[in-house]
Design a protein around this nucleic acid. Structure first.
Lengths: 186, 186
DNA sequence: GACGGCATGTAAGTCGTTACATGATTTG
DNA sequence: CAAATCATGTAACGACTTACATGCCGTC
């Protein structure tokens, strides 16, 4: 049974209890999406495939009138999840337009580069704000999922601070060149 | 003229001077690949397309006997690059298997989780080591490309440290539960 | 003259998103 | 009853990687 990119997500989330494809998508969008996205186009086909392979199974229709297909993890599914967790692969892929722009920004004037840095900084500040909202709840539960949240907070804080630092450096350079300093105090 | 994902890379690197597709690929693999990868299958077709659109142009055959196709940036290409740099889009996509594993690692024993954390930590320590090698050279040139390198160093250091911290937390928990502590001093 | 690296290029296949279709059900 | 949202599903498209094909050049 090979794993697609959503397979571990499905097995891992079903391990917390029975869920539907819709549930899984919603949870992903509130948690792993920052480092591992998933779309319906991946989730629904994979649910069927995994059910066919016996790693998950459909549960009896639930109480509520609404039609939903709830799945639960089978022992075989738990084994497969553990096996995947213990496999050595730790691949990373990043595609960050902001940093590509910074890297190529020699074609910009200082003012323009400052604009870019400011935009990048607010992007990361916004993520920090978003993650801070969740923090209290995640802290209670603790464990490694909370560790992952701390990582997200740390990385985004660091990035925002670096942007601020680079902005200051650009302004300092400009000052040395005799351009009037219009920075607000502080 | 729309931009594919390699278009800014090509224009940006040709701005530093004439280059071949092969050159660009090599530079990417030593610089942007950490946050923006590119393959031959993208580069060569795009070079032709961009030449057809007049954003870059082929130069006369070079001295060396070896057949290479050198391109240079045209004024139209520089304009297009600047326009792209000034556009508001700052998309990010991340796919990090290590952190997905951490996030789902409740299915592991503490020992197994410690193994995972250790592997993740050494992955990031290795990146730090790799980037440190380049640092001196990048520092001389300075500017925003150096800023991007500092970002890479910072993020990977922070991640490695967080792993170490989570490892300590797991060990402390275990200690509280009366499991004998086998940590080396320090 | 064989091998390794330079250099260009493409075909096939995988992966993933987007957008849409469908219909049921709760809520105002 | 209209609108929002729950819920499942798929088709089409685009993006990217991989692997291979080709041939040349310099070196041992």
């Amino acid at each position: 049974m090979d794993f697609t990119s959503v397979t571990p997500v499905i097995l891992g989330m079903l391990r917390w209890g029975p869920r539907s494809g819709y549930d899984i998508k919603r949870i992903v969008d509130n948690s792993t999406r920052f480092f591992w996205a998933a779309s319906y186009g991946q989730i629904y086909p994979d649910l069927r495939r995994l059910a066919g392979a016996g790693l998950i199974e459909q549960m009896g229709k639930p109480k509520g009138g609404r039609r939903r297909t709830l799945y639960r993890l089978t022992p075989a599914g738990e084994d497969a999840l553990r096996e995947w967790l213990l496999s050595p692969s730790l691949s990373v892929e990043l595609r960050d337009e902001g940093f590509l722009k910074l890297f190529l920004s020699e074609a910009l004037t200082d003012e323009e580069a400052l604009g870019l840095l400011g935009a990048l900084r607010s992007r990361h500040e916004a993520v920090v704000a978003r993650l801070s909202e969740i923090e209290a709840r995640a802290k209670e539960r603790g464990g490694l999922p909370y560790g992952v949240l701390r990582w997200g907070l740390g990385v985004n804080r660091l990035t925002a601070e670096l942007c601020a630092e680079l902005e200051r450096e650009l302004l300092d350079e400009r000052e040395e060149e005799g351009v009037p300093d219009v920075r607000p105090a502080g």
